[in-house]
Simulated scan of single mutants.
Amino acid sequence: MNPILQAQSNHKSIRQYTDKTIDESLIKQLIQSAQGAASSSFIQAYSLVQVSNPENRQKIATLAGGQKWVESAAEFFVICADLTRVEYCSLKQGLGALEGNTEHFIAATTDATFFAQNLMLGAESVGLGAVFIGGIRNDPEQVAELLNLPNQVYPIFGLCLGYPDAQPDLKPRLPVDVILHKDSYDSHRCADDVNAYDAQMQAYYQSRGDNQKNSNWSEQTAAAVQRKKREHMLDFLQARGFLKR
């Protein structure tokens, strides 16, 4: 494999960090490189907030469900979908304000996500570890208030960055043949695919060096989606100017 493919294949979520700081010049370089990500119609509808205030970090860690690595990481960012500049462009050109179209929400969210994945991959390429923090959506209103986020901006997830102090085992991903469909989607194979992967993941969970458990992929996945519905998100997003039509 070339270095990029190797880095993509070797991603691990890192939650334990050393006390080593990250040079500000490296942070800016990583952000600039991450901006090379694809963008819908080149609207670049994202921003990130570098959270350095220890009190705010502690509050966000608590809001995210007690994720202490938000506090202990060398750097913590909040990745935001941001349509403020896009709306200004529309007003400047005499085309009116944005109207909360679902398409614009999707474009901004995907733009921000492409950028964030690039940022994580770049960070890992220089020896940093990282983990995304979806738990900030437990209470996005408080997070938005802490960070002074205006309307047309919403926090999608956080990102911890730091030098790793531990290396967890690499989780086996779904086999390529499970996620790859040719010409048309084959829904008949779902049960067999999931059951086979459950067996693989159960063996992984029972054999890894740390945090062994008797579980499988479907058990973990069902718990993740059914216990984290965050039904407040629609009202929150609509109040910020998203998903109105």
Rank of each mutant, 00 (worst) to 15 (best):
M1T: 11
I4S: 09
Q6D: 14
Q8K: 03
R15N: 01
Q16A: 10
E24M: 09
I27V: 15
G36Q: 11
A38R: 04
Y46Q: 06
S47L: 06
Q50F: 03
V51K: 04
V51N: 01
S52N: 13
R57Q: 07
I60R: 01
L63A: 08
G66R: 08
E71C: 12
A74L: 05
E75F: 05
F76D: 06
F77I: 08
V78W: 00
C80Y: 06
A81W: 00
C89Q: 13
Q93T: 14
L95M: 12
A97Q: 13
E99H: 11
G100F: 14
G100M: 14
I106K: 09
I106H: 11
A108D: 05
T113D: 02
Q117P: 03
Q117D: 08
N118S: 13
A123H: 05
A123Y: 03
A123T: 05
G127N: 02
G129L: 10
A130W: 04
V131P: 00
F132S: 01
G135S: 10
I136Q: 07
V143L: 02
A144Q: 08
L147K: 04
P150E: 07
P155N: 09
F157M: 01
F157S: 00
P168G: 04
R173Q: 10
L174G: 07
I179K: 14
H181T: 01
S187D: 03
C190Y: 13
D192K: 15
A199I: 15
Q200L: 07
M201R: 03
Q202N: 15
Q202R: 15
Q202D: 13
S207Q: 14
G209I: 05
D210A: 11
N214R: 07
Q220D: 15
K229S: 12
L234E: 01
L234S: 03
F236H: 11
L237W: 06
A239C: 02
K244V: 03
